[in-house]
Design a protein around this nucleic acid. Structure first.
Lengths: 225, 225
DNA sequence: CGATTAAGGATAGTATTACTATCAAATCGG
DNA sequence: CCGATTTGATAGTAATACTATCCTTAATCG
């Protein structure tokens, strides 16, 4: 099988981790550890110990742990974008594309064998729990200038484009889509931890319910008249 | 003028800061400093230096800085709840209540002289920038059990109740309201820092636009049939 | 009025974190 | 096989998030 890799913004890393053995270990293990410990309790020291390397070596790949998180989450958005392309390319209608897109967004994430060293299931949990921390910092503006959020921004733009195709007069397509993208993560988190803030059940069919919830909001909001 | 205070969950603090001079200084100054430095760069040491007290003394009021943040944000939700009551009590119709409620949620926040030692404008910016960090931690479940999120949860429940009054058949009232409550903060943040993720303008009338945006989503989504 | 208690100040100390720096050993490409 | 690059090993630093102890002062209560 051909190995796919995503070309991510070079400012995310110092040395490309996809190209070396140590780099791949860093990615694989950090996904596992951030998922388990949470980003706050995850440190380069602990990571280095686990992969039997040293802190200094990890710092040669990533400037700091914040950039590593940004890297992982950028990877996630690229992956989602790729999957959305996969499932929307067969449609020509914007409406069908949007429906397919929401399905991909809400689906339960499983390990994707197309990408060997990433555990997508764990990465999805990381995105749910840590996404907001990537931009809620005093360095947002700087990070944004360096292009560290392009993955999220371009995905949002693409989907908002379909909204504009359906109803060019609707004035808030980007706001609506960014809201939906974030809500998909938030509501899953609430279902797991603060159930009174949602109506999604704890059971496995919550992904389907989430899909219904968001689809209704999206299409009712953008319908004409 | 009668001085109002909110009765917040006792687990938020070790000693009630509203009742002492030092406590009030801690609240007033921490709002100012978290707003300026951001929560990550804010420390009890820096705070103590500013109010000319000591780290140890601050720790006598709050177990740690995370609880202090939770305290401030709980205070904010209580305040919002109080303002929503103020502006909805005149209406009897659920729809009118919801409209008034969204107006309060989206309005630009100004200093409220009813509460002397809190700068609501700064606190609002803190909520916008730091809210998600209060629950995106490994200790959510524990904090939730201690009742540290009741402020947000009860507000959400109250508003969702009005939704249910209008359309009892709508299956996701809590999810819809929590989404809207959070989006109101998020979209303001995007307008300031990641404008391509929203359609709110940088100008002052963005609060009004935000109101239109959210009102349309809410009422279109819950309309019957 | 004197004694008790509580609040706050002063100081010290600890483990951990998030780095930075230096040098030597291994390895890899031409 | 030579030289450049990569990694490992080790050390060190400033800051952070606490905890502990002791002392002074102020309020309270019989």
């Amino acid at each position: 099988m051909a190995t796919l890799t995503f070309r991510l913004n070079q400012n995310l890393y110092l040395r490309d981790p996809q190209h070396t053995d140590l780099g791949q270990k860093i990615i694989r293990k950090s996904v596992e550890m951030i998922d388990k410990l949470g980003f706050e309790h995850f440190t380069f020291k602990k990571l280095a110990d686990e992969i039997e390397s040293t802190e200094a070596s990890v710092y040669r790949y990533f400037e700091n742990k914040h950039r590593l998180l940004l890297y992982l989450i950028s990877w996630y958005w690229s992956w989602l974008d790729y999957r959305i392309d996969l499932f929307t390319s067969s449609s020509t209608e914007a409406e069908a594309k949007l429906r397919a897109c929401l399905r991909v967004l809400c689906e339960e994430k499983k390990y994707d064998p197309a990408f060997e060293f990433i555990n997508e299931e764990a990465l999805h949990r990381i995105v749910v729990a840590e996404l907001d921390k990537t931009y809620l910092t005093k360095s947002v503006d700087h990070d944004n200038q360096e292009g560290l959020f392009v993955g999220f921004k371009s995905l949002c733009k693409k989907i908002a484009g379909w909204v504009a195709e359906i109803n060019p007069a609707y004035p808030y397509p980007n706001a609506l889509i960014s809201m939906i993208l974030l809500s998909a993560k938030q509501q899953i988190f609430f279902a797991d931890h603060l159930p009174s803030l949602t109506n999604l059940p704890p059971s496995a069919d919550r992904h389907q319910k989430l899909n219904l919830f968001l689809e209704e909001i999206l299409f009712r909001t953008i319908q004409k008249n």
